[in-house]
Write a protein that binds this DNA or RNA. Sequence first.
RNA 1: GGGGACGUGGUGUAGUCUGGUUAACAUGUCAGCUUGUCAAGCUGAAGAUCGCGAGUUCAAAUCUCGUCGUCCCCG
Length: 381
Amino acid sequence: MFQLIKQDKSTKARLGRLTTAHGAVDSPFFMPVGTNGAVRSLSAENLLEFDTQIVLSNTYHLFLRPGLDVIGAAGGLHKFMSWDRPILTDSGGYQVFSLARLRKLTDEGVEFQSHHDGSTQFFTPEKVVDTQKILGSDIMMPLDECAPYPCDRSQAERSVLRTTLWARRSKKQYHAVLDRGRMQYLFGIVQGATYPDLRERSARELVGLDFDGYAIGGVSVGEPVPLMFETLDWVLPLLPEDKPRYFMGIGLPDQIVKAVGEGVDMFDTCVPTRYARHGSAFTRQGRVVVRNAQYIKDFGPLDDQCACRVCAKYTRSYIRHLFNSNEILGLKLITYHNVFFYVNLMKEIRAAIQGNTFDQFQKEFFGAYKSEFAAGESLAI
RNA sequence: GGGGACGUGGUGUAGUCUGGUUAACAUGUCAGCUUGUCAAGCUGAAGAUCGCGAGUUCAAAUCUCGUCGUCCCCG
């Protein structure tokens, strides 16, 4: 269950605790993305070193490889990946939208071609719930239809209708197959593209179905950042206060700090890991592209305010060299730092909310952090 | 001493025979992109007076002569 521990007085930030079969998670929290059952280049021990509370994995990818027979035989995803803390699995709705070659999307489900071998696959809401039951994830996400950007109104409306239909079927299947006494949560995913009334409709319909938490999906699909935040204004007021809110796929560090202040509890994004592999480290001053030539002889740490193991030991110069030489250690070191940065940022956010200083925390953060957006898209409040 | 092959961005090559726009490709370098994952991707930029000199020609990386350099073979 989710327990709302504290509501910040000067912002809409919330402090909470989500209790799962694999332990409790303090919110607001960030879930490092481990699509294939691994946060790229990091071991479970690495993640525990800085007290990562929960990771995200992916139904679609794991279903295709290694397959349910393997993970089932392993005793579930936790055992398979040697991770005994909570796991949220995404449904694959986003992958059908972004990755697989779509062949047919109907109310029944989605037929698509595997991006591995081209084989034809068919996903239904029921099958996605069944799959996640076998994976044993602590939080399951239902199959949804992620609308693109831009998206005309009729298409956005269709995706809302279908997402609600699928949510209802997911919920039904969930109750039909759920083991007694085994705690697995099922969330609803709000769609509606950039149409306020469709977002509102989606939120109301899903709340009516009573999920364990609510995600705002169909965001960060190419829309301007201010529009992405407007979606929160439309949706969050309609969600029950005693359920966690999950901003799917978000975001850059300053976006997370802002969204927490709007009342979001959960985040995930591949940004810290992917940006790391492409040579970028996050710091409290903003993003540092360590790969760049200006760091050739920079013998300071990635982030001089960081307490991580990498910053204690390795220099920008060395990491740049590793990166430049295509040494896998370079990716690993930046990834470690970046995930630490995100996890630690959330820890500081929670401490600030706890200490009634979150509004001050936001001001200081935005004051120091060089935003990646144009002036017109400033996140400062 | 004689004979032969080759000199084109940092590196490796294509183009030369059959002269014709701003000399191409790979890699490297430099930078940008990245938001419910695409490590080994995507986009862009810089970088060569085609070893040097002369000649032929409307026009030379390309043909001719000379010269320098590297490598190979023979003595």
